[in-house]
């Protein structure tokens, strides 16, 4: 019984998805090709949440900051008009460097707020968004001069909302093409995601991975046996931030357009919800949870507005339903997990 319990949540969402697909009255092919896009766009974010959970820090809502690092890198690339594979790799390099720096800062802050990591990481996410807006809405044109005037607003201060990155969208075209639903897609992004997943798997088996799990299991004991717990927690956050920045680059590559001020906004919530849908808890999460979660959660995401339109003649209802799902899943997970935590203490 105990063993099957953790499959309850994914099963529940599987049933919901099936009802949604039927209710929406869409073809399986449509769902598949949409799902491919969403898997490519969101897969790495969900994986990025795994390591902080292992370290006992809960869900790292500050993965938003990694996404912002990716935006910054892409803006620099666009400003200097370096496109193609070279630009893509350079973007990854810049965003990784930025993420390492930012990850260290976030880790430092979260170490100061032990026991309140999740709410603190939410506020960090908000604050980082604001500072980012300040930089690109006001900083550009006043302090920083853009080389590429196309990305600037006509008033001369601040960047435009969108930057066209269609060049990157073509990057994987024609490589390892497979047929997904109604469209031809490249397998390359999927391979990248699998490689990232393997990387996380490797890290969890390395020395630092063992320490991360030890710190997550019991921070006091880990400290007592001589592990530098603060350092381990900081490294966990750095890894998470770096992965998130890579995730955001994949996301934007797939869309081919960067919405400077909005693209990062809900990724933390949706990724967290997806992971939890996959059967993860706040203390325990693995790669399987991540993959199952992404597929189930995004299936629902695709079909619920359509189902709302179809069943209630109201597309908005489906939309409300899915945002309720995202937040509701998280609340539900909190209630289940944290109660368990307080019970096991007795």
């Amino acid at each position: 019984m105990e063993k099957y319990k953790r499959y309850l949540v994914p099963l529940f969402f599987l049933v919901l998805s099936i009802i949604g697909i039927i209710g929406a009255g869409v073809s399986m092919n449509f769902v598949l090709s949409e799902l491919y896009a969403r898997f490519v766009r969101n897969g790495i974010f969900v994986i990025a949440l795994l390591i902080p959970i292992m370290a006992g820090m809960g869900i790292n809502f500050a993965i938003k900051v990694g996404a912002l690092a990716a935006h910054t890198a892409l803006i620099i690339i666009a400003d200097n008009q370096i496109y193609g594979l070279k630009g893509f790799l350079l973007a990854i390099l810049i965003s990784t460097v930025l993420s390492v720096i930012l990850g260290n800062i976030i880790g430092y802050i979260l170490n100061k707020a032990k026991g309140k990591e999740m709410i603190t990481s939410i506020v960090i996410g908000f604050l980082a968004t604001n500072l980012y807006q300040l930089l690109f809405m006001v900083g550009y044109g006043t302090i920083i001069k853009a080389k590429n005037s196309e990305i600037m607003l006509s008033r001369g201060i601040g960047l435009r909302n969108n930057i066209d990155l269609a060049e990157f969208k073509k990057l994987f075209d024609g490589i390892l093409t497979i047929r997904v639903g109604d469209t031809n897609e490249s397998l390359a992004p999927v391979i990248i995601i699998v490689v990232v997943a393997l990387l996380v798997y490797y890290i969890s088996g390395s020395r630092i991975g063992h320490h991360i799990k030890a710190v997550g299991g019991n921070i006091n004991t880990s400290q007592a046996v001589g592990i530098d717990t603060n350092r381990v927690r900081r490294i966990a956050i750095v890894i998470s931030t770096v992965l998130a920045s890579l995730g955001q680059i994949m996301y934007i590559q797939n869309i081919g357009m960067l919405n400077i001020y909005t693209d990062h906004l809900n990724i933390d919530i949706f990724s967290a919800a997806a992971l939890l849908v996959g059967g993860a808890t706040l203390k325990n999460a693995n790669i399987r949870n991540a993959f199952i979660g992404v597929l189930l959660f995004h299936t629902l995401f695709i079909v619920s507005p359509l189902a709302g339109q179809n069943l209630f003649k109201h597309a908005a209802l489906g939309e409300y339903f899915r945002s309720f799902l995202a937040y509701g899943t998280i609340v539900f997970a909190f209630i289940m997990n944290l109660r368990y935590e307080s019970e096991s203490k007795l």
Binding site: A113, L134, I157
Partner: peptide
């Protein structure tokens, strides 16, 4: 830059909350 009002307002708001998490009873000794 009229948008800056909103941005500054949010920076103040969130900055103060973050400060409070870090320095006011946030990090209890384990």
């Amino acid at each position: 830059v009229p948008e800056i009002t909103e941005v500054l307002r949010m920076i103040i708001t969130n900055g103060i909350i973050l400060y409070a998490f870090l320095y006011k009873g946030g990090s209890k000794k384990y």
